[in-house]
Design a protein around this nucleic acid. Structure first.
Lengths: 236, 236
DNA sequence: GCGTGTCGGTACGCTGCCGTACAGACGATC
DNA sequence: GATCGTCTGTACGGCAGCGTACCGACACGC
């Protein structure tokens, strides 16, 4: 299971899976946008305004609690799309979504997205399948959060993000990673240190580099392979 | 937030939300079934054969790990349906689904279910909304599993099951509850004992009785209200 | 009534992670 | 090159829940 090197019609794999005719029609509705670190893509209480198709950027879906803590429940990059709520729930979504890794994306007006899907093109089928793949990702994470060690979950997070970015460098601080994983920053330091000692990753002041993907895959739990396998079976 | 007393066209709230014409058409496709404790409703690796609409029974969706441990990722009762994978993913689903609380249900052939949904009736809209409500349930559980105490999660589980059954008695052993929550049986004993001391529940050899719902709601975390609120906003 | 299996209560030491705190290392800025 | 803010390393006691084990209470079948 190696990192996919995108050489497709579109860097976003949902868009890349569209038949030519659908792709042409839809691309006229797409507007390129830059993902900036931390930029909100959806705020609970508001209706989703757009559907986003990440190309090189990555988004996080988090549950925010009344005391301010945020726990990541899903990661969305070029393998998926942000804005399923526009399709499934009239744009209503209690989860927060923001940019985790800056980069390129395209977006589509939420109404146009809904219209395109209701019209019954190929995007509908892909969105349906992706919705299920996301459900599997979130469900497996729920179980993983319960029983797997921080070391394993940390490796999984790095692998999932690595899959979604260009190159082997991921810009993020331990502080940030700690928040996503729902643990202390000091805990991440220890887990990251262990991975570094095993020469799987290296890092330095806010940048992590993946050195040995295979090794990381061995270090993580089975959840990684299941989530990725299921996505590939559904979207291909 | 009190327990809903179903006095509707159908004890299943998805079916009850259908307009009369759709309900009549669909009910001809429904076959009553008895949910027996532990009965499998879906096994990973197989295609879903039916969609189930629980009336008084309750189902569990669990992630099963290679060492045999199973962690519950969702609970489905009369507020929902089992078999979204037939709609979203051609029946493919890596999660195990089985009966947690025995009772009544109706089921529909998976192909008929797919056909009915593709034909664009009211069931499609409801299934779509329910899919999102389930995504929210699972996502919030993922975060909850990470940060909330066993006591809180135990109370939440009891509330969610209480919402889905008739009466205040829930037949389940601490052993079983421990597996669902992904903790030791001894841990559940302690949590349950604490709830009993506060006179919120009582129990005896495999039967739990909810005494004080309001109290339980105060004892649990905010996740319960969020999940339930979101479901009601989407299905009503 | 007696044996057997199931269910729940309790105890032990152990471990992973917590909360907190402080210190060193590095980078940017002036 | 001095300063300051950010990022990472480390240490401390503390606690929730773990794995395991044992025991009593109860239900059921004979």
């Amino acid at each position: 299971m190696s990192k996919p090197l995108p050489k497709l019609r579109d860097d976003n794999r949902i868009l890349a899976s569209l038949p030519p005719a659908d792709y042409r029609r839809i691309s006229r509705l797409l507007e390129p946008v830059q993902f900036r670190r931390g930029q909100p893509l959806h705020e609970p209480g508001r209706r989703a305004t757009h559907a986003y198709f990440p190309r090189t950027g990555v988004a996080s879906v988090v549950a925010r609690f009344s005391d301010g803590t945020a726990i990541e429940v899903a990661t969305i990059g070029n393998e998926g799309l942000v804005g399923l709520s526009a399709y499934l729930a009239d744009g209503r979504n209690p989860m927060e979504v923001f940019v985790q890794v800056p980069g390129e994306a395209v977006r589509m007006d939420a109404d146009a997205f809904r219209l395109e899907i209701r019209s019954g093109g190929a995007l509908r089928d892909l969105a349906r399948r992706y919705a299920f793949a996301l459900l599997v990702q979130v469900g497996q994470s729920a179980a993983c959060n319960r029983i797997h060690s921080l070391d394993q979950r940390c490796a999984r997070w790095l692998l999932m993000t690595h899959d979604r970015v260009l190159g082997d460098h991921i810009a993020l601080t331990q502080e940030y990673l700690a928040e996503m994983l729902g643990v202390r920053r000091a805990g991440v330091t220890q887990a990251a240190h262990a991975l570094k000692r095993r020469r799987l990753i290296d890092y330095h002041r806010g940048t992590i580099r993946v050195i040995d993907r295979r090794g990381l895959e061995r270090a993580t739990c089975e959840c990684y392979a299941l989530i990725r396998g299921e996505h590939e079976a559904l979207i291909g």
